[in-house]
Design a protein around this nucleic acid. Structure first.
Lengths: 243, 243
DNA sequence: TAAAATACTTGATACAGATCAAGTGTTTTT
DNA sequence: AAAAACACTTGATCTGTATCAAGTATTTTA
């Protein structure tokens, strides 16, 4: 159903690529330097228009922004691309950025003494990702963040974040609402993890978020629910046959 | 150590009692109506001064408020007293208020099909309590909130909350910061519940929040950690003897 | 397109923590 | 002050999920 390959088309990828110059030289060698220059100029503009499409549509679901505010907000963000399996943050480093996922899929996780990974969050198009604690406190992070699928991100530093919230009160409001909703969903996950059996946890997740089940590898879903891959595999078998 | 009786003294209780008229008539029957009237007037003022002491000190740890803002903020809150075991919210009702605990101890919990209670939160002096989802959505709550110790609260309705945040931008900021911190602590609890053994969960909670262990009954602590009271009892025995 | 790496499945066994049961303390109520 | 209710402890047993192990798919890399 839902492809996890990353990009819908090669051309579209060009417009989205912050490293567009190099990419175009390699991938579309027209041998015509004039044409190439035109392509580059176009792509600068289109890249920018595109890059903030998802983020502004998400913000404006919650608060209104003027054109001036939008222009100001853009100045605080840096675009970044991440290839599958690349780290955005490694345990021990300070999480310097709060990132918005324009495209792709990130995960955050920690690794215990036995080397087992425990999924904390996933973030795809329209979601924010960071280690909130490390980001706000500038202390070393206990988590890792990397790309499950190739990703395109918008990053904001702590300094930028604070300045933006002070200069654009609508963004202060947006983040208050965002954090509010985040609290609600974390609370649900917590209650589910404390009160339900493995099977119930999986069934509820699948019902509440079918998209997640389709897109994210099963071993990561298992970890997210606090289960081993074997247990989740058995549960799925039981559900598909028994019920 | 920490008494769970609720009130330090009978006299102090008077000043804090929103139903001060009736209380004074019953408890301090001087038989002198003039004196009684004076006492009532005094108590109105002192009640108000006292009621907002904790809340403003907590808010001003995070944001600055002018005298005018403080006066405005007060108008949005209603004081309320709750006796031990009294409900603030019952499953199926809509959570109409966000409450701040000036004194005492509240808990929120849900009850599963087997009738077992699962602790979600505790809130004592300086903490907020509500079912965030029900409060913001006005949908029926799946939780109960009641008083573990006699409590004195400041309540704000959803309408009041929204109006307050729009009229006092510092409060918008305060709640954004509050929710941010809440996310951090919920995340920690979640990771702990997924990645650690029962003993580790308890040890970490005891280290991070010794106050909680002293003040809250063990069976509630057990539930909060997703354990049975029997298991927690055995863990404590093991820790006190073995280590 | 082959080889290597990774993801998923299935089976046998182990164990942490739950459940059931029957105590003993400690509050709360009357 | 007695009785009832509730909180905590301890023991015996059971069970859901983890662990270990050895497969079969599937994806990634070369």
């Amino acid at each position: 159903m839902h492809g996890s390959s990353g990009y819908p088309s090669a051309v579209q990828q060009q417009w989205r690529d912050p490293d567009f110059n190099i990419s175009i030289l390699f991938k579309y060698p027209h041998g015509n330097h004039v044409l190439l220059a035109v392509a580059c100029i176009c792509s600068i503009q289109l890249t920018f228009v595109w890059m903030f499409e998802v983020i502004f549509s998400h913000i404006q679901e919650k608060v209104q922004l003027t054109k001036e505010e939008q222009a100001l907000i853009k100045t605080f963000f840096t675009p970044k691309k991440l290839r599958k399996k690349q780290y955005l943050l490694q345990e021990g480093d300070v999480c310097r950025y709060l990132v918005f996922v324009e495209k792709g899929l990130l995960r955050s996780y920690n690794v215990d003494e036995k080397g087992v990974e425990h999924m904390i969050h996933f973030a795809w198009e329209g979601w924010w990702m960071s280690d909130t604690y490390s980001f706000l406190s500038a202390e070393a992070s206990a988590y890792n963040i990397d790309a499950v699928e190739d990703a395109e991100l918008l990053m904001i530093s702590l300094q930028g974040f604070e300045e933006m919230l002070l200069k654009v009160p609508a963004m202060e409001r947006y983040f208050r609402i965002l954090f509010q909703n985040n609290i609600i969903s974390k609370e649900r996950r917590l209650i589910s993890s404390i009160t339900h059996s493995a099977e119930e946890k999986y069934t509820q997740l699948a019902a509440a978020n079918p998209h997640m089940i389709q897109r994210i590898p099963q071993n990561m879903i298992a970890s997210y629910l606090g289960l081993t891959p074997e247990t989740l595999s058995r549960i799925r078998k039981k559900l598909s046959s028994g019920a």
